[in-house]
């Protein structure tokens, strides 16, 4: 999800850089009280933890493994302001020392992942917590939901920036559907990993979780560590939510097919944006042919759009794991 150099033009990159500096500056000021209290070591170590945890392979079921992005998890663990600072530090080191993410795209990456990813994840988790029983265990599903939503939200933010300053003319509606569809799938993995990691923290030290500071100290009357289990049921619920989100998004996209195209037409410069080869593809304009009702077929196209990448992704990881397994056996 790290944007490289050359995706966005220079004016947009400069503008996102300036905006990112302002946003991180705000986060630094808001986090200052906590940072003076705890010292710079704690956020620094949290950043190191996020960086290291991003390199861990998590098995997320069906033979697939995934990586943590960590925006929602960091927000839940250390609070949204410190989390923004922490993820910004991670991105800065990745761009400067690991060439991961372009230097001119640093502003873009900070806005999508350190600001949108963290803030959306935190707000969704806060909101979800309101509807859950007020105990430490509720932190886990709430933060998982934050993780689920934060990833496609960051993808959508990138799509918005691309609409402003993208260097290649891609129909924005199509880009948004593809980005959000694909990242909704990644979001399911993020939710599962976030839940599992946070579950382990809540089981031992629920008092460390920033998001749960207002909750009563858990584990006092019942005693014993709380165990959070995530099985097929969690996977099924995650999948269902993804399909629902993808359908809803493509419904919104298809009721007004391609907002930018519409604007372009009304402004009178939509000469080139017609007759793309994909017009003849079965998902052209996100309407599945053969379904009469445009709303139903639009939603169906969204579901197909979400399912296809899952199937392709599962197939690829399955093949990769088989190869890796064979290589490991050969090495032994």
């Amino acid at each position: 999800m790290h944007v490289p150099d050359g995706f966005l033009d220079v004016p947009t990159s400069v503008a996102t850089g300036v905006a990112a500096v302002a946003m991180v500056g705000t986060a630094l000021r808001r986090a200052e009280r906590e940072i003076t209290e705890t010292g710079p070591a704690l956020p620094g170590l949290t950043a190191a933890f996020v960086f290291a945890a991003q390199m861990v392979n998590f098995p997320v079921g069906a033979g697939t493994s995934g990586h943590l992005l960590g925006g929602a998890l960091a927000a839940a663990l250390v609070g949204p302001w410190t989390a923004t600072v922490v993820i910004t530090s991670v991105l800065l080191v990745q761009a400067l020392l690991f060439a991961d993410g372009g230097l001119t795209a640093l502003g873009t990456n900070v806005i999508t992942m350190a600001v949108v990813g963290v803030v959306v994840g935190y707000l969704v988790a806060r909101l979800a917590l309101r509807f859950l029983p007020p105990r430490a265990r509720s932190l886990v599903p709430a933060t998982a939901l934050g993780g689920l939503v934060s990833v496609p939200a960051a993808a959508l933010a990138f799509t918005g920036l691309y609409a402003i300053g993208g260097t290649v003319d891609i129909p924005i509606g199509r880009l948004a559907t593809a980005m959000v569809g694909w990242h909704a799938v990644i979001g399911v993995g993020e939710a599962l990993i976030t839940a599992a990691v946070l579950g382990a923290v809540v089981a031992t030290r629920p008092d460390l979780v920033h998001l749960g500071r207002h909750l009563q100290p858990a584990g006092s009357p019942a005693g014993g560590p709380t165990r959070v289990r995530l099985g097929r049921r969690g996977l099924a619920i995650g999948g269902a939510v993804t399909l629902a989100v993808a359908s809803a998004v493509s419904l919104a996209a298809s009721t007004h097919p391609d907002g930018l195209e519409y604007i372009a037409t009304s402004l009178g410069f939509a000469g080139a944006a017609s007759g793309s080869p994909a017009d003849r593809s079965p998902l052209a304009n996100y309407v599945v042919h053969g379904l009469a009702n445009p709303w139903v077929s639009g939603a169906a196209a969204g579901m197909v759009g979400a399912v296809v990448p899952v199937v392709v992704g599962l197939l690829l990881t399955f093949l990769a794991q088989r190869r890796r397994g064979r290589a490991a056996r050969a090495a032994e």
């Binding site: 933890f49 098995p59 579950g199 031992t204």
Partner: peptide, 17 residues
Amino acid sequence: GLAAVAGGVGARFVRTY
């Protein structure tokens, strides 16, 4: 399993903190 891997990572966060 996921729980085993994540349990280790979660415990690592507590230690890191």
